[in-house]
């Protein structure tokens, strides 16, 4: 016999964990409950511990560029399915579903814009699109962004967020690592600046190509950055990973990033860097003449 017996039938007890109403969000790191508007006002960083929430590519574009100066290029480029790849579902279906779910066409946005009045070429990856993976489209769009920078002698800024090369395009994805690196080599020869910004997470083939090749490499606080993912490293070595392994601070300590910059200071830091690099911009270049493509 139970000590407490329910005498009434049909009483509904709320046993499920209550979802926070839409206006509140919980910090993944410290558990603080933050009012969403406060979070947005704080560059999507926790108001208590400073934890950097993952954000959309579009938010980075707004954060980095002057208001309404972004002119997107190659926006209609989409992945095709060159290998006719099928795992548990067809790659072509996976693309379609992801395009309709995310409203973006692949894992990167590229275009021109102004940063405190200076014209730049900007590329921003979106982790929400098949893990920000790099297939032919991501590689080609970065390659064309570098071409644009080369054509008008502009600085290039790339914000990375990626699990690495896209498996569903096999060796073709791998070749995008070579393609993007080759274009950065051309920029290097022309003395044009390239700033690489690493956000959470940046791993695999993206890290092992353009992400690690910046004249200056900036990381966001706490971002996971590495070649092999932590799970793979743990499995391969059978060792416990040291605390903070593959986090931005770990890379700074080992000499692989130049600086860690909180989001609120990102634009100012970029401005200072661009000022130091100086401008080589083609005097005939006029951002107003550039059309969206």
């Amino acid at each position: 016999m139970n000590w407490f017996q329910r005498t009434k039938e049909g009483v509904n007890v709320d046993t499920e964990k209550k979802e926070l109403p839409n206006v509140w969000v919980k910090c993944d790191q410290c558990g603080e409950i933050i009012y969403k508007k406060d979070l947005w006002a704080n560059f999507n960083c926790c108001t208590k511990c400073g934890f950097h929430f993952r954000i959309f590519a579009k938010t980075y574009i707004q954060m980095i560029l002057d208001d309404k100066t972004f002119i997107t290029i190659n926006k209609n480029m989409v992945s095709v399915d060159p290998l006719e790849f099928t795992d548990t579902k067809k790659y072509s279906d996976r693309i379609k579903t992801t395009v309709s779910k995310t409203g973006i066409k692949d894992a990167i946005h590229t275009g021109y814009g102004k940063l405190n009045g200076r014209p730049v070429v900007l590329a921003v990856m979106d982790f929400g699109f098949i893990g920000g993976s790099m297939g032919s489209v991501v590689g080609e769009k970065i390659s064309r962004a570098a071409d644009a920078a080369l054509a008008h002698k502009l600085p290039l800024i790339i914000v990375s967020a990626s699990g690495g090369a896209r498996m569903m395009e096999g060796a073709l994805s791998l070749m995008q690592m070579a393609k993007t690196s080759a274009k950065l080599a051309l920029m290097h020869e022309q003395g044009l600046p390239y700033i690489s910004i690493l956000t959470d997470p940046t791993t695999g083939g993206v890290t092992a190509s353009f992400a690690m090749l910046g004249d200056v490499i900036i990381a966001e606080p706490g971002a996971l950055i590495g070649f092999a993912g932590p799970r793979v490293v743990k499995e391969a070595t059978g060792k416990d990973l040291p605390p903070g392994f593959q986090r931005a601070e770990f890379l700074l300590e080992h000499g692989f990033v130049d600086l860690i910059v909180p989001r609120k200071d990102l634009k100012d830091t970029l401005d200072k860097l661009l000022e130091f690099f100086g401008t080589k911009t083609d005097p005939h270049f006029d951002l107003n003449q550039v059309t969206e493509s």
């Binding site: 690592m177 992400a211 090749l213 070649f227 490293v233 060792k239 040291p242 593959q246 770990f250 080992h254």
Partner: peptide, 22 residues
């Protein structure tokens, strides 16, 4: 490429990326 702790500490990704560029 070896997915080891030390390999990551010594910049496996950077080493590969640098080779692609050069």
């Amino acid at each position: 490429a070896f997915p080891g702790i030390e390999a990551e500490e010594r910049g496996q990704a950077e080493a590969i990326a640098r080779n692609l560029l050069e």
